[in-house]
Simulated assay, not measured.
Amino acid sequence: MRLRAIGATFGVLTLAASLAACGGSKSDVEQGSAGQELKGASLRVGSKEFTEQLVLGQMTLQLLRAHGASVTDKTNIQGSTNTRNALTSSLVDLYWDYTGTGWITYLKHAKPIADPTEQYQAVAKEDLAKNKIVWEPPAPLNNTYAFAIRQAEGQQLGVKTMSDLANLLKTKPAEATFCIESEFSTRDDGWPGLKKAYGMNVPAGNVKQLDTGVIYTETAKGSTCNFGEVFTTDGRIPAKHLQVLEDDKHFFPVYNASLTLRQQIADKYPQIQKIFAPVAQKLTNDTMSRLNAKVDVDGYEPKQVAHDWLTQQGFIK
């Protein structure tokens, strides 16, 4: 289960038990080393379970502590719905989510908004009105779905866009083989919707369902599949020399990352927006891809990757 994983919805008691096992350790950053704006605040930080979320969660823990807050690590929650439920049921106080997830998964809209600014504004307005959830100004990074192929194979097949891929299915169907996640196979903003949008008739034998990490490995090998479902800020894309196909019909939603928190917390601690706005501005696709690669390719811990980047950017000492 990954970025926009829906997952089974647990009850509050079950979720509380799972959160108790998620963490509880504090960041090594010295409390108040960057300021005392949040002195006296006690905040629980959540995140989903995949690399990017773990890095963002560690950034949040360290920044809050550096500005004087006492923090509790509740990161590494399984799935989007469980993480969101932790926020709305006050088991965590804030975590990073994605505008496309908010619009489609939480607010139940079938059709995404193509313009990133309009998508963010729509999510922020509706979620605040309906659920009293605040979406802070988003980062430029757009961790959306995509399909990728080995660079050399993509050039050989002449496939650069999803429309090219749809055409390949008609001319060389044996070459159009796919690796996808089980959840992606059933999502409206995933496999069923994608096939409909691009008019793709894919033989069942051309599709293999694999775990997320395995998809990158097998796509790079090219034996199980030529085309793998990927996430656009994943550091394994450049590391494994994969070429991302252009979504030329703009089917996939925009997934800009945004710090989310309950209105009660945002109102009580307005300093949070001031602290995190400049951080969000620097989180581009390229930046996040490099940070993710530090974990997934180079083997560093998310905590260390977050600390190093925040230090290099001057956000913490």
Rank of each mutant, 00 (worst) to 15 (best):
M1D: 14
R2Y: 13
L3C: 07
R4V: 14
V12E: 08
A17N: 10
L19Y: 02
A21N: 05
D28C: 00
D28P: 00
E37W: 09
A41T: 07
S42T: 04
S42I: 04
V45L: 07
V45N: 05
T51G: 13
E52H: 11
L54Y: 00
V55Y: 11
V55H: 14
L56C: 13
G68T: 09
N76M: 05
S80C: 02
T88Y: 07
S89N: 13
T99S: 06
G100N: 03
G102P: 04
G102Q: 08
K108M: 08
H109D: 01
A114H: 12
Q119F: 02
Q119H: 10
Q121H: 08
L128K: 10
A129Y: 09
K130H: 07
N131M: 11
N131R: 11
W135M: 09
P138M: 05
L141N: 11
A148T: 07
A148F: 11
I149K: 01
G154S: 05
M162A: 05
T171P: 13
E175A: 15
E183Q: 15
S185G: 07
R187S: 13
A197R: 15
A197P: 06
M200S: 00
N201P: 02
V207H: 01
K208Q: 14
L210Y: 15
T212M: 07
Y216H: 07
T217Y: 06
S223N: 11
T224H: 03
P238S: 06
H241C: 01
Q243E: 11
Q243L: 12
D247P: 15
N256Q: 12
N256S: 09
L259S: 08
Q264H: 05
D267M: 00
D267W: 04
F276T: 06
A277N: 14
K282Q: 14
T284A: 12
N285M: 02
M288K: 05
L291G: 08
D308I: 07
T311F: 03
F315I: 00
K317H: 09
